[in-house]
Structures are given as C-alpha cells and as structure tokens.
Design a protein around this nucleic acid. Sequence first.
DNA 1: CCTTTGACGCTTG
DNA 2: ACAAGCGCCAAAG
Length: 105
Amino acid sequence: MQTETKEEFRVRVFTLIGAIPEGSVATYGQIAGLAGAPKHARAVGYLLKHLPAGSSLPWHRVINSQGKISFPPQSEKFRQQSELLRSEGVQVQGGKIALRQYQWC
DNA sequence: CCTTTGACGCTTG
DNA sequence: ACAAGCGCCAAAG
C-alpha cells in the first residue's frame, strides 16, 4: 500500500530524531535526508510542530541548516530549546549552536 | 480541486 | 555576516 510511504517517512523521522544522543544536534535537512527525502526538511518541521505535548522526542536537538534555533528570539520556545540544549552540554550563543558539525553518526 | 501556510534549504547580492 | 528571493513538498482550509 502507498499509505506506507507517508507513515514510513514519519516513523523514520521520529526514529532518527530519537536516535540523536545528548550533546549532539541535527538539522531538519539532515533528518529529512536520512529519512530518504532531502527536500522534506519542512515536512520534518511540520511533524515536530504537530508533536503531542507528552512525546519524549528530543525535538530540541533539531535545528536548521544555519546551525541556529528555528524560533524567533525571546520567544518561549526559543528559550526553552536553548535551555534544553545547554543542559545537555551544547553551547548556544544568540540562538546559534557553537558546534563545528551537526552530524552525530 | 485550488490556495495558503510553514519549527526549511540553497543561491545571490 | 546578513537580507531577500526562489524552490520544494506535505498538511490544512
């Protein structure tokens, strides 16, 4: 069935994000690419946006290609994500991740 | 069915 | 380093 494709993509995305270890971050494009759809970065963002409140998915470890948090500064989400990242040992400056690489494996 | 939106990405100036 | 424009695709209205 074709319905598997969308489902598969979603499952892959969730699995990949869940596989990001602490202290590491991945980009939306990276996740989409590993999920088999390099151009579906936005779809990844859509999925995260539609995340249930209780999901244990480390969404905060997903950032954009610019290595920055995809939230407007001073917004609650922005602050929360940067706090979570910092608590995992990721250095954040002005919404930008102080890392040289965004790949974890 | 068509239009709009969006937790993105890449190129150009 | 930063801003604007274009592309790309899925979900919602």
